[in-house]
């Protein structure tokens, strides 16, 4: 139990003193997961809109696959990307293994099903009659999609937040693809894993608290952005 109390004290100390190594790890965690979230948004919003709007044979199966991939284990996502990026793999020549860019790719693949699936769900929540009304009022199809996306923005934002949450909290893929290299690819979760295996429990808990504060910061910024937008 002591470790938990010490963890909180340690977290406060690390934050107040701006410990350079912890700061570096925190910033790296944030940047990698934010980029992964933005990339997956850039893919999943158009892809989700397309899947929602277009009717085609096998649509149900495609959505079923996407929803199944919500459960993709992080280690398996990491292993898959590792095998592609490894020196012996097809993309080994890119030299992306053990780099932050490789970790961005792994996290993007990991959260893409969630952001895509929940974008479809968000759009479905708006209902088809809104689109029909828009089209009957003379909107082009593109304008109608934008309008529906606008209506669904809160649900889509929460889909992206969930994706971000999965990205920043996962350790399996980051460990395999990033390698937890000090000063290069060490992020909060892999550092927590390392400190726990060395027995520095209070430091692990402190880093966990910092991770949650980071998530809180991202949530608040998004909420503020939403308010400022109105």
């Amino acid at each position: 139990m002591n470790e938990i109390v010490e963890g909180f004290i340690e977290a406060i100390r690390l934050i107040v003193t701006l410990d350079p190594e912890v700061l570096e790890i925190t910033v790296r965690s944030l940047v990698i997961s934010l980029i992964a979230t933005v990339l997956s948004a850039a893919v999943s919003i158009p892809l989700g809109s397309l899947l929602y709007l277009r009717e085609f044979p096998g649509k149900g199966a495609v959505i079923g696959v996407i929803q199944t991939l919500y459960s993709l284990p992080t280690v398996i996502a990491g292993l898959f990307i590792f095998l592609l990026l490894s020196n012996a793999g097809p993309f080994g020549f890119l030299r992306l293994l053990f780099t932050p860019a490789g970790m961005v790719i792994a996290q993007t693949v990991l959260i893409l099903p969630i952001t895509t699936g929940l974008t479809i769900a968000a759009l479905s929540g708006i209902g088809r009659e809104v689109r029909d009304t828009l089209l009957s009022l003379g909107a082009t199809e593109y304008q109608s999609i934008l309008a529906i996306l606008g209506e669904a923005r809160f649900a889509i934002c929460s889909a992206l937040l969930l994706g971000f949450g999965r990205a920043i909290s996962e350790v399996g893929a980051a460990m395999i693809v990033g390698g937890n290299i000090r000063g290069q690819t060490r992020i909060l979760t892999t550092a927590i894993s390392l400190e726990t295996s060395i027995g520095n429990f209070s430091l692990s808990i402190a880093l966990g608290i910092i991770l949650l504060l980071l998530a809180l910061g991202v949530n608040l910024s998004l909420a503020l952005l939403g308010r400022w937008h109105h």
């Binding site: 940047v31 980029i35 933005v38 030299r95 780099t99 860019a101 961005v104 934008l146 606008g150 923005r153």
Partner: peptide, 26 residues
Amino acid sequence: MMKPKIVFLLLACLVTALLVSGCVQQ
């Protein structure tokens, strides 16, 4: 919805990050 400008800015960050990580390897 997310402003295109913001998306563009973040993508620019990504490209920079990729380039920087590429340089580190050199």
